[in-house]
Each structure stands twice: as C-alpha cells, then as structure tokens.
Amino acid sequence: MSGFLIRRLLQAVVLLFIVSMIGFAILHLAPGGPLSQFAASGDMTQADLDRLSAQLGLDRPLPVQYVEWLWRLLGGDWGVSYRDQQPVLRIIAAHIGPTMELMLSSTLLAMLLGAWIGILGAIKRYSLFDSLATIGAMIALSIPTFWFGLVIIYVFSVGLGWLPAGNRYTVGDGSFLNRLHHLIGPCIVLALVSTAVWSRYMRSSMLEVINQDYIRTARAKGLSERYILVRHALRNALLPMITITGLQVPTLLSGALVTETVFTWPGMGRLFLDSISYRDYPTIMGILMLTAIMVLLGSLIADVLYGVADPRIERNGQ
C-alpha cells in the first residue's frame, strides 16, 4: 500500500512539474500582458509602462522567468499578484471558501438526488421512470451550464421572484438563511451534471449488485426487499461510487467557474477570470497549480478508496 502511495505521489509531482511548464508557456507566450489594463485608460505614458515592465521582470527571457518562478515556488513562495500587490496564496485562500461552499453543497445534492434516481431506476428497470431518468441524464449532460443558469435565473428570479439572481448574500444581511437562499440557484446549476453522472453510475452499480448471488440468497431467505436493499445492495453499491466523486473534481471545477460567472459568486472561478483579463500571471499560475493539485488529489483518493472498497483489486503500474 505504502509503496503504491509513494509511487503515485512521485508521479503526481512529475505531473505537476509538466503542468507548470505547460501553463507558464501558454500564459507568457500569449500576446498582451499585465500592463494592458493601464495602457487602455490613457493616463500612463509609454515610459511608465516600459519602466513597470522592467520592474516586474517581464523583459527578461522566458526560461529565466520560469526558473525563477519555479525556484521560488519550491521555496514556498507563490509570488505576489500584479493586480493585488498581495501574496498569491493569501488571495487564493480568500477566494477558495465560497468555491468550496458551492462545490461541496452541490456534490451533496448531486449524491442524494443521483443516488435516489439511480436506485429507483435500477429497481424499476425499464419502467417509465427509468427511461425518463435515462433521457433526463443525457439532456443534463448536454445543456451548457451557463445557459441552464440563465434559464434558472429567468424562471425563478425574473419570473417567479423566488430566488436572488446572484451574489452570495444580501448586503447588510449575512444571516445563515440569507446565504442559504442565495446558494440554492448556483447549487442546483452546478449539481446538474454531477447528478446525471451519479444517477447513471448508481444505476449500473446497483444492477450489478442486485444480480449477485448473496442478494439472491437473501431474497430466497425471505428477507424484506427494503432490508435487502439498504443492508446489502446499497452498501455494496455505494463504495465504488465514492471514487466517482474524486474523479469528478475537474468537471466540478470547470462547472464552478461558469456557475460563479453567471451567479456573480465571489469564488475562485471569478478570481481566475479576472486574473486572466488582467494577465495577472502569478495569480493565474497559482490557481492553475492549485486546481491541478486538487485534480491529482481527487484521483489519488479515488484510487486509494477503490482499493479499500475492493481489496481484490491488484495494483500494477497504473
């Protein structure tokens, strides 16, 4: 087990290194730069812009900039934001809370809803409900997240007036209920895709379990359906499901970025978009590295849990 872990961690470090190179190259080779925002307003002269460029070290060769950035990163220094004049880690820390709130709540919603739909679908296989769930899941995976967000806002905020059209809370009212009220819309939007994924996986993994011998035995013993379902089938079906959550991290992060944009949610997605438009290189790199770490951790946890859930799984190189 520990040998496996060490190997996976080493792999992850190598991957992060490649990720950092790809990210750095893409960002710095792109035209434009962090000074564009000041050039546009017209009250800084070219001399000012050139001076700032030199002060930020942007006039040096790219490999030199990369090595320096990497060296600092290895020393725990993630750099200072060009826009904020604050350490990147502090900025990310300040934005990660709302994103986590959104991601965790929507994952929870997706798990409950998805599991319910999946189980029901498995029990009543080929029923109307099952067919509708199948079609629904496929559609859910096809809707552009931001458009679904717009529709939710149009129906529930503009039309019915039930939900706020955006933001994390009302100014001057940060109560729990108020925050919950604001969370509903984005949470539903972000949960859409995961719910579809969960329900499909849950359905097939339930079907597999239901057809296994020990369930048949239990049935033959005359145990109640409900008891069998909860006691045996669900437990065994749930375990592999947990791994899915780990593998969902990248999808969830992408979804969060879009959802945050539509609902003006003050999280990391907004920060990333803002930083891209300012070309705030240190912050963008910081977020890219952090999301990569989260993705790798997610898949690592998925693998480990999968092993725990099913000790029969052998571990080879991959």
Partner: peptide
C-alpha cells in the same frame, strides 16, 4: 501518456481560457 495526464490535470474550462489568450 504523462503529457496526456498533465493536460488532463487542467479543468477543461481553465485550459480553454488559458489557451484562448494565445
């Protein structure tokens, strides 16, 4: 395949946005 893995470490929208700058 490690390169493939590395590319998959970027959430797709993040990668799309970063490259769209190019």
């Amino acid at each position: 395949m490690r390169f493939v893995d590395a590319m998959l470490c970027f959430p797709s929208i993040f990668l799309l946005l970063a490259i769209s700058a190019l």
